[in-house]
Design a protein around this nucleic acid. Structure first.
Lengths: 197, 197
DNA sequence: CGTTTGTTGGCACTCTCTGCCACTAATTGA
DNA sequence: TCAATTAGTGGCAGAGAGTGCCAACAAACG
C-alpha cells in the first residue's frame, strides 16, 4: 500500500475519533468504537494509533506543519513579522475549511480533556524543535545553544497562546477576519518580546 | 488520617516509583511492582495515583512550588531579576539534597520517556497558570488578557529550557555553583526577552 | 460503649494495548 | 505464467491499567 493511501486512512480514522471524542468524551469512547466507526478492525486501529489519544495527532500536525512550512521559506532579508504577514494565512492554505474547523475543535477539546491536552503539548514540543532548527540556522549558532532554545521556546509559547485564543474565539464559527486578527496578534506579541529577528 | 500523613505517603510511593522507572523504564514497571515496593496494596496505589505516570508529580511539584513561592513574595518595587537573585536558590530551600537530585533525575528521565514528558508538560502548564495570576495582578490586568498570557507563557518557557539545561548539566552530580549559574541563566534570558518588569 | 466516618485491601470486571499467527493481495523474479 | 516473497489485515489470547463494589478495620465522636 502506498504511503499516501496509508496517510489518508490515518486521517480518516482520526476524523471519526475526533467526532466521537467531542460527542461523548475521550474516556467514554473505546478503541473498538472508533475502529468500528472507521470501518477497520480493532487490531488495525491499534496499529495505526498506539494510544487512542494519538488520534488527534494527524489533524493537529496539519496546523503545526503549516506554520513550519512558512518558517522554512522565511527569506533572510525579511523580518519575521513581515514574512508572516505575507505568507502566513494560518491553516487556510494547506487544509480544507472543514479541517480548520476540526483542528480548532480539537484545540478546544484539549481544554476539557487532560489526555488530549497532554498529546497536544507533546506535539507542540516537537514543533518547538523544528522551530529551534530554523532559528539556529538563522542566528548562526548550534541548535543546542541556550539562547536559541529560549528564543524557540518563547516563540512557540506565543503561538500556543494565540492558538488557544483563536480556538476559544471561534467557538461559533470561524471568519477570515478572525484569522487575520490571529496573525496580527502573533506578530504583535513577537514584537513585544523582541523575538522578530 | 491527617493530610500531611497522606502527603508523606504519596511522596514515599513516588520515590519508589521514580527509582523503578529509572532502573527499568516506565513501561517495564507495573503498578503492582510499585505498590509492592512501597508496601501498600495495588488497590491503594491506584487510589493515590490514578495513572502511574502521575507518580512523578509529587517530586516535580516541589520544584514548581519553590519557584511559585518565590514569585508570590516578589515585592512591588523590585525588578524580577533582582528579586530572583535575592530569593531564588532553586530547590535548595524547600527540599533536601536527595530530593534535588531526584527531581533533576526525573527531568532527565522525561527526555527518554514520552509518558513522563507528557506529565511534566501538563504540570508546567499548571505552573504557568499560577504565574499568570501573579503577573496579572502586577500588571493590573485581568488574567485572561492576551499579553498577560503571552508573558506568562514566555517566562514559563524560559524556566523550562533552563531546567532542562541544568538537569542535563548535572547528570554527574550537582554543585552550588551550577545552581547559581542556573539562576543567572534564567535572569539573563528574562532580560533578553525584556520580561523582567 | 455504640455509632459514625474514613482508609484499606480484595475481588471481579472493563478497557487498553501487544504478540502471534493465519489469510489475502500485490509485487517480484525466473 | 507461475511460484515466491512482501506487506497489510483481522482474529485470538493475554498482560497490564484502572475502576466499582464490598467487607474489614481503625480512629473519632457522642
Amino acid at each position: 500500500m502506498s504511503d499516501e493511501q496509508r496517510q489518508r486512512q490515518r486521517v480518516d480514522i482520526s476524523r471519526h475519533a475526533v467526532r466521537l471524542f467531542s460527542e461523548q468524551g475521550v474516556a467514554a469512547t473505546s478503541g473498538e468504537q472508533i475502529a468500528h466507526a472507521a470501518g477497520v478492525s480493532e487490531r488495525t486501529f491499534w496499529r495505526y494509533f498506539p494510544q487512542k489519544e494519538a488520534c488527534v495527532e494527524p489533524l493537529l500536525t496539519k496546523m503545526v506543519d503549516a506554520f513550519c512550512a512558512v518558517l522554512l521559506d522565511w527569506p533572510a532579508e525579511l523580518e519575521l513579522i513581515d514574512h508572516l504577514r505575507e505568507a502566513y494565512s494560518p491553516l487556510l492554505d494547506s487544509a480544507s475549511d472543514e479541517d480548520i474547523e476540526a483542528v480548532l475543535a480539537v484545540v478546544r477539546l484539549t481544554h476539557h480533556e487532560p489526555a488530549l491536552r497532554a498529546a497536544y503539548l507533546m506535539l507542540r514540543e516537537r514543533a518547538e524543535d523544528a522551530l529551534a532548527d530554523v532559528l539556529a540556522q538563522r542566528m548562526g549558532r548550534p541548535v543546542v545553544t541556550i539562547d536559541v532554545r529560549v528564543r524557540a521556546a518563547a516563540m512557540s509559547s506565543v503561538l500556543k497562546v494565540a492558538t488557544d485564543d483563536i480556538a476559544r474565539a471561534s467557538a461559533e464559527g470561524i471568519t477570515r477576519d478572525a484569522l487575520d486578527a490571529h496573525r496580527e496578534q502573533i506578530a504583535g506579541a513577537l514584537r513585544g518580546l523582541s523575538l522578530s529577528l
